[in-house]
């Protein structure tokens, strides 16, 4: 019982900051503190009137979609190789691919920055994508590994035995069965890229991403309520994306009769 109370308190601790977001987003006061001053939707209205913000959102969306697609494609290759094949140097290769999971993001950011600057390449959205793909791939591999792992090797062999080629059996059998994992990977990678700050901060050049734009706004106290409104929308978007990812994963598991085991990671 004590443990249960503790777990609930811990959940409150986890959710406390996010719970404050909508409270201040609708609070009719420029100072972010209690007591509250009354209800307003003014901050949300202001969001629609900031062209710089809209540019940042668009920039972030382009980067997040590109990163998610590339990371998932690379993740499919790595996860299938890791779960299905034995090849020389497997441990080291997979280790390197998964390394960004534990590497501080600032290290990834500065090392990429150094190389890009030395090569004289211009910074921009595409350099952010390069970095984001790097940190999204480990998550993609982790998700897809479990998708590929729960797949019986005999399934593809059975398709080949029934006349299909290697590729068509992959397309007809493996792909549909790992599709929930692929969708999860796309959504999670999209979310990571959309929220990522440090790498974007170092590599973005002149067009800021949404978090970089936000970072700039945090310095101006009078802009904080608008940031709160924006944050509310962002959290909402993340939660929706995650809920969709989780739903797809569970439906996929139910459809193929697998036991539902654990969450997104």
């Amino acid at each position: 019982m004590g443990l249960r109370i503790y777990a609930v308190l811990y959940l409150i601790f986890l959710y406390a900051p996010i719970a404050l977001l909508p409270i201040f987003a609708f609070n009719d006061g420029t100072i972010i503190a209690f007591p509250l001053r009354g209800f307003t939707t003014e901050w949300f209205r202001q969001l629609t009137e900031i062209p710089a913000l809209h540019g940042a959102v668009l920039n972030s969306l382009i980067i997040a979609v590109s990163s998610a697609v590339i990371a998932t494609l690379l993740g499919i290759c790595a996860a299938r190789a890791a779960t299905r094949f034995v090849f020389p140097g497997k441990k080291g290769i997979m280790g390197l691919i998964m390394l960004p999971l534990v590497l501080p993001e600032i290290i990834v950011a500065v090392s990429l920055l150094v190389v890009l600057l030395q090569l004289g390449l211009p910074l921009g959205a595409w350099t952010v994508v390069l970095g984001h793909v790097l940190i999204c791939v480990p998550f993609s591999v982790a998700i897809l590994n479990s998708a590929f792992q729960s797949l019986d090797v005999s399934l593809e062999e059975a398709a080949i035995d029934l006349g299909e080629t290697r590729w068509s059996s992959f397309r007809l059998i493996t792909l549909p069965l790992v599709m929930p994992g692929i969708i999860s990977s796309l959504l999670i990678s999209f979310t990571i890229s959309l929220d990522e700050f440090i790498i974007a901060f170092f590599l973005t050049g002149t067009d800021p991403t949404l978090p970089v734009y936000l970072w700039g706004q945090l310095r101006f106290p009078q802009k904080i309520p608008v940031v709160m409104a924006l944050g509310t929308l962002l959290v909402l978007a993340s939660v929706i994306l995650l809920a969709v990812a989780e739903y797809v994963r569970r439906r996929g598991a139910a459809r193929t009769g697998q036991r539902d085991t654990g969450g997104l990671m």
Partner: peptide, 20 residues
């Protein structure tokens, strides 16, 4: 002759029933 063109068919130990 590759597996998919042999005049043999197989019942797998796990049955390998396509779950989808």
């Amino acid at each position: 002759v590759p597996a998919n063109r042999r005049p043999t068919n197989m019942v797998f130990q796990s049955y390998a029933i396509f779950p989808h």
